[in-house]
């Protein structure tokens, strides 16, 4: 099942491309992922490096870091999530508009990392649904870019009419037309 049925029919006049709505919507979505930088600890430094000219996340259409959750569609959780901060992370996630994705960057966001302690949430997937986990402490910017390209791949193969279930709550996004 691919959503990549792009086809150029030279018999049709006027440079028309025939495809499916899902494929177009996903194409648009995956090349304009606007990240919400949830930088909580040291991993955020690598996230910043990924935004700089050396690694240049702009090559993937992701340079528009939005500190306002309502304008972002991919939360990059970069750092240690404490129980005290978990509430904030969840609330910002809730404020992001669908469709939205979450990337757990680094060992701490993925699993609590080296902080096996009373104060640290043992993986951000306990409070928000995570799409991509990136290993490393910290992951290099290349690893982040690799993870973001994986996310693009995931978006490409998603149905644009998105149905996401998390802990009993179902959120549905419909493509009209």
């Amino acid at each position: 099942m691919g959503n990549t049925e792009y086809a150029y029919n030279s018999k049709v006049e006027g440079e028309v491309i025939v495809t499916r709505a899902d494929a177009v919507v996903n194409w648009v979505r995956r090349h304009s992922v606007w990240p919400m930088p949830m930088g909580l600890a040291c991993c955020a430094i690598e996230l910043m490096a990924a935004g700089g000219s050396r690694f240049d996340i702009a090559r993937f259409g992701m340079e528009v870091m939005r500190f306002s959750p309502r304008q972002a569609d991919c939360m990059i959780v970069a750092g240690t999530v404490t129980y005290k901060m978990a509430e904030v992370v969840r609330r910002i996630y809730d404020q992001m508009a669908e469709p939205k994705w979450v990337v757990a960057m680094g060992a701490c966001a993925s699993s609590g990392g080296m902080y096996r302690s009373y104060a640290t949430l043992q993986g951000v997937d306990r409070i928000v649904p995570v799409d991509i986990y990136i290993s490393g402490c910290p992951p290099r910017p290349e690893a982040l870019l690799d993870g973001m390209m994986l996310l693009q791949e995931k978006i490409r193969t998603e149905g644009a009419s998105l149905r996401r279930t998390f802990r009993g709550r179902t959120v549905e996004t419909k493509v009209v037309g």
Binding site: K84, A86, E87, R90, R91, S117, Y118, I127
Partner: peptide
């Protein structure tokens, strides 16, 4: 007090309700 922590409720009741999670001792 054990380093791994003790099971208690998450600080925010609404987040606990929507995620069904509590503070659990760390592995």
């Amino acid at each position: 007090f054990p380093l791994a922590g003790m099971p208690v409720d998450l600080p925010a009741a609404d987040v606990a309700a929507v995620t069904g999670r509590r503070v659990e001792p760390a592995p």
